[in-house]
């Protein structure tokens, strides 16, 4: 599936929830259930320091696709990461570079991307794109 289709699928899933409680419970479930990153990659180098919660990201190329793994010490952050990974991992670097992130607004999680939350998510999206740029250069 291409990124836009996955995002649409996520938006559809979230549209089934009536209120914030259900959305948060779902994200917490996602956060709890996903084995996100291999311990050896949970290093200082891979850490994106936010003001509130830590986020680790690791990227590697699998043929022509970029595979992301990530983790966080906060569970809601981890849930959002799981959603981002689902949308962007296993995609071609150029597609990741070109993708937009408006679907985060559409699923009602906009406040987590506000710079005042300073939770590393904004930096994380930037980091995913930077990895994509770096690997795209490598592929060229």
């Amino acid at each position: 599936m291409i990124i836009a289709e996955i995002q649409e699928e996520i938006v559809d899933e979230f549209s089934m929830f009536d209120d914030w409680m259900q959305r948060y419970e779902y994200m917490i479930e996602l956060g709890k259930s996903l084995p996100l990153i291999d311990e050896p990659y949970k290093t200082e180098d891979n850490i994106i320091k936010g003001c509130q919660s830590k986020v680790w990201v690791h990227a590697e190329l699998d043929n022509d696709k970029l595979v992301f793994t990530a983790d966080s010490d906060a569970i809601i952050t981890k849930g959002i990461i799981a959603i981002l990974i689902r949308a962007f991992s296993n995609q071609k670097p150029q597609d990741i570079i070109d993708a937009n992130t408006d679907f985060i607004d559409e699923i009602g999680l906009k406040e987590h991307l506000s710079p005042t939350r300073a939770n590393g998510l904004v930096s994380m999206i930037k980091q995913l794109k930077l990895y994509a740029v770096a690997y795209q250069t490598q592929l060229n």
Binding site: S53, I75, I76, T77, N119
Partner: peptide, 10 residues
Amino acid sequence: GTHPYDIGSI
């Protein structure tokens, strides 16, 4: 077992 960010968000 919880992170302050999660408590604050809820």
